[in-house]
Design a protein around this nucleic acid. Structure first.
Lengths: 162, 162
DNA sequence: ACAATGTAGGACCCAATAGGTCCGATATAT
DNA sequence: ATATATCGGACCTATTGGGTCCTACATTGT
């Protein structure tokens, strides 16, 4: 599907929210109500983030969550990995379930996929909660971007050599 | 899940196979048996590719499929889009189902996600069947790459400014 | 002419996952 | 003590992914 799950969406929303709060803890309920996210589900997600050390939790009344480290040190890659479990961070099964792949020996696309996977991973590792915070000040109009249009129309994009 | 489906895997395998055959048509059965892919399923995938004009089909005995255009002109992005239908080429629902997103107005991560999405899309648009053919001559050992290890271990990667 | 081998495409099936809810237990500030 | 938190397991349901089966139709070889 090449789409990130809602859980990851929610995690990113919550984390950028926490990043902006800076210090003060926010409860799952609070965040959920602000962004219209199912409360119980967000709670689960935040618990995972807490268990993984991306976030610290304060129990009891007046409790909640706050970032466990600077927003610059939380990458999208890590968030995905934490929220939906490691195996999902590879573009294809055969890159994780090594040996479990039926067509491993005859497969003709192993190494290109590996490369592609690494590139995506790198991109997700360079994107941090901090960078997402900065970025969101830019306007978003909900239009299809030039890239999306080009792909949909099956237009040839210029090849970039490296 | 951020993983491409088996259908896409199969499509890419078949396409690079066809690219190497150069001219001569291969039947779905042939390709399926070489790579250990369920035949009926591959047939469906190839039919989609044919309907979308990425591949031409020759019916009847001695029939089969061959590339409809040079391998350089078939991008991974396009293949994904064709095989699993447009909506799947965006990292998150809200980028496609515009308006259908519950938290659209309050969402704090719209534009960063848009950017990320574009970057991935661009990368997938620059990768062609031709480039995958070249690439596969490189050795593949099935080991975790440096990038994968770094992410899993939650190591901070150097930030690259643009 | 007719069998063998193709593609075309609809119907269907099953298992896995995503998304979400509910509940009881525990911690803590007022 | 009570209201408000997190914690974490159990559970539910709709969707999707992956795959099979079957019928119809097109071509080639004999």
């Amino acid at each position: 599907m090449l789409k990130l799950s809602k859980k990851v969406d929610y995690a990113l929303i919550a984390l950028t929210h926490l990043a902006r709060q800076d210090e003060r803890a926010s409860s799952a309920r609070e965040v959920a109500s602000i962004y219209g996210i199912p409360q119980d589900l967000l709670a689960k997600v935040l618990q995972k983030l807490a268990r993984s050390g991306l976030v610290v939790s304060h129990q009891g009344m007046k409790g909640g969550y706050s970032l466990a480290r600077p927003a610059e040190a939380i990458t999208v890659a890590r968030v995905i990995e934490v929220v939906e479990g490691q195996p999902s961070l590879s573009l294809t099964q055969c890159l994780t379930d090594l040996g479990a792949c039926e067509q491993f020996d005859t497969c003709n696309i192993k190494s290109p996929l590996q490369r592609l996977n690494d590139e995506v991973l790198l991109m997700l590792s360079r994107t941090t909660i901090a960078s997402m915070c900065d970025d969101d000040h830019a306007s978003f109009r909900g239009e299809r971007t030039a890239v999306a249009v080009a792909v949909a129309d099956d237009v040839q994009l210029p090849v970039i050599q490296d």
